[in-house]
Nucleic acid binder design. Sequence first.
DNA 1: ACTTTTATTGACACGATGTACGTTAAATAG
DNA 2: CTATTTAACGTACATCGTGTCAATAAAAGT
Lengths: 201, 201
Amino acid sequence: MQQKIDPRKVRTRQMLRDALIALILEKGYDAITLQAITDKAGLRRATFYLHYKDKEELLFTILKDTFDELVSEIDKLQVGVDISAAQLAIYQVIFKHAQENADLYLSILTGRGASTITRYIREYLSHSFLEEMCFRNPDLELTMPMNVLANFNATIELNMAIWWLEQEMPYSPEQMAEMCTKLTLNGLQSAFKPITAQMPT
Amino acid sequence: MQQKIDPRKVRTRQMLRDALIALILEKGYDAITLQAITDKAGLRRATFYLHYKDKEELLFTILKDTFDELVSEIDKLQVGVDISAAQLAIYQVIFKHAQENADLYLSILTGRGASTITRYIREYLSHSFLEEMCFRNPDLELTMPMNVLANFNATIELNMAIWWLEQEMPYSPEQMAEMCTKLTLNGLQSAFKPITAQMPT
DNA sequence: ACTTTTATTGACACGATGTACGTTAAATAG
DNA sequence: CTATTTAACGTACATCGTGTCAATAAAAGT
């Protein structure tokens, strides 16, 4: 006997998936209860536990499949060795996909829970950056919006720090500061106008 | 009459703050209930609601004060106009502070809730990057660990997208892809060894 | 038709939330 | 010192979501 999966299992899981997606669009991820999911799917709440631990585990199976599909799409693009062109293609796939599923991702990526905390901190860092920028370099010319730069800067500061902590701090604060400075500054400089001859009065 | 605050109010709030911090270190942010906080503080649960809406609001007041202090520390450093030196100083303050409060930030930044979702996605993107990197450029020389680069790339991809969605997509996917490519690539290239003459066999 | 797997049903105990209200204690004004 | 205001206490109540269980029913595979 080959490991043929019971079609009822597949059907039930698909119903749970559909129910979760529908509810996310209806009322937002955080507000969803298991009761609501199983009601929507026309199943009992106890049934849910036969397949998933909680609504998060259900969501992860959906995300994994979605991302696997996106990756294979990107692989099919078969850009050459041009890194810049490849990166551009990847971003285009990412942002187009995000736009197409905007409601869904808004709900699961920006809801309550701990992400509210990370968002709060990121906005704080971004605001700090803007203030500092407007204070020190009020008439600097840029090739892209300053709020993009502020968020770019805040995102790296916050998330590199989170990652570093998760890895149990394998590098010293100095090493991290150096690496992040290099990575961040070479990126940020691309936002300044090439070179302007600076003349004092 | 000046707006003097009742000392009991100040004392109660301080007790709640201390209790929350202590509990975060003890059992992790997500596992904390209001009952646990007020028990620790030696107060009634109903009292909590006289001051804060929920434990998140309480945490935010603590974070705001902490960050305000950090910012004023950074302001006091008073580095010159050298952007690179200033950025280095800021990162040093950030990572040192994160290290000193590692337990606390690990708890509030990496717990369950929606942040589990963002972490999952970030790890997915990071893993994808590593696979792609090891597959296409197996013998590339780097000036810093590849996992740092992978996380840097994943962080920007994910968080720029989240921010973009939060702002109600003020730019097209193409614009975002362009800006992110510029910002990301100029940063990533700083991790490669200057220039190596490439000779085909 | 028979067997095995899976879903259904209803119920239960548990824990956390938010609120309400009368009482007690503490701080401040006069 | 006394009166008044304000905070915190003590307790209770209704609500909701969770996780689990055991007995029953249904449906697919052979």
